[in-house]
């Protein structure tokens, strides 16, 4: 009878003992780049990770270790003697991985970084209980979280980027970022490079064509080529200039200079628009650096 009782009780005992094992703990979520999520006890946005007790019993994780180095499993230990290290059934706790373990029980002496894998190690310092790999590409304020799809919520096989949900059920799954997609489709970056270079050249080439076109228009090259430049306005202006110059006694050079200045002004090839002044240049195509060849005359 006693044997029968023991046999019947054994699975329950095992289940109870097993449920209170450290092996029921998982690293359920991690946030490597925290700029707007949880604030720690010191008012800082520190990287954090969440551990979750999957069992129906209480688990005390005091003395357990966390590490991001598989060759050094005892890198950062959770101190003993703090009652807050007891996790009730289906409860979770947040550990700040900011590199400064002196700040308290729930602070680790290494910083959680993208691309690293973080391990939860039993208090024997040898047995790895659980691990979570943080992707190299993950946006800021997006966590990497474990999700369970079994009815009892015991097996957490699915790992996705997610909206941070510290101390609560893991949030909704995040969409893949562009950078993540690029890393999968173009890990070495050649496609993006070739496309980007082509776009840069294309954009500036279009600008080149447009400005070349506008330059030709403004300098009158099109008009000169088509030889249709005989507008009545310009002829009238030229006649008016000639009449005006004929009334005054002046040298040929002065007349030529004034005529040239007026021509440039009327054909909109002068550099500046300054009321009260006409810029007179002896050679508009080469005088930009030769100040001795330029002078101004007040009108």
């Amino acid at each position: 009878m006693r044997k029968l009782f023991l046999l019947l009780a054994f699975p329950f005992l095992c289940g109870t003992i097993g449920a209170q094992n450290l092996s029921d703990l998982i690293i359920s979520e991690a946030l490597p780049v925290n700029t707007s999520s949880l604030i720690d006890d010191y008012g800082e946005h520190s990287p954090w990770l969440e551990i979750f007790n999957t069992s129906q019993g209480t688990v005390n994780f005091a003395g357990c270790f966390f590490t991001d180095d598989p060759t050094n499993l005892t890198k950062s230990q959770i101190p003993k003697g703090d009652l807050a290290t007891k996790l009730g059934p289906r409860q979770s706790a947040v550990i700040y991985a900011n590199g400064d373990a002196s700040k308290g029980t729930f602070y680790l002496n290494f910083e959680l970084r993208k691309g690293n894998t973080v391990y939860l190690v039993s208090n024997d310092g040898r047995t790895i209980i659980d691990s979570l790999a943080v992707p190299l590409v993950i946006d800021e304020n997006v966590s990497i979280a474990k999700f369970s799809h079994d009815n009892k919520g015991l097996i957490f096989n699915d790992i996705y980027p997610a909206a941070p949900s510290p101390l609560s059920e893991n949030g909704r799954r995040s969409q893949k970022s562009n950078a993540q997609s690029i890393q999968e489709t173009d890990p070495h970056g050649w496609t993006l490079t070739v496309v980007s270079v082509m776009v840069v050249f294309f954009a500036l080439f279009i600008l080149f064509l447009l400005y070349n076109l506008s330059g030709n228009i403004f300098t009158g090259k099109f008009k000169e080529k088509s030889k249709t430049r005989s507008s009545s306005d310009e002829e009238t202006t030229a006649a008016a200039i000639a009449l005006a110059l004929a009334r005054y006694e002046s040298s040929d050079d002065t007349e030529a200079a004034i005529a040239l200045a007026l021509h440039l002004y009327l054909s909109d090839r002068v550099h500046d628009m300054e009321p009260g002044y006409i810029t007179i240049r002896s050679n508009p195509d080469s005088a930009w650096r030769n100040k001795s060849l330029s002078f101004r005359k007040k009108t």
């Binding site: 600008l207 447009l210 400005y211 330059g215 403004f218 090839r269 500046d272 508009p284 930009w288």
Partner: peptide, 16 residues
């Protein structure tokens, strides 16, 4: 030497 640029061209440049 670069040619002289008119004011109209300078105004059109940023818009285009």
């Amino acid at each position: 030497a670069p040619r002289i640029v008119s004011q109209k061209e300078k105004i059109i440049f940023p818009i285009v």
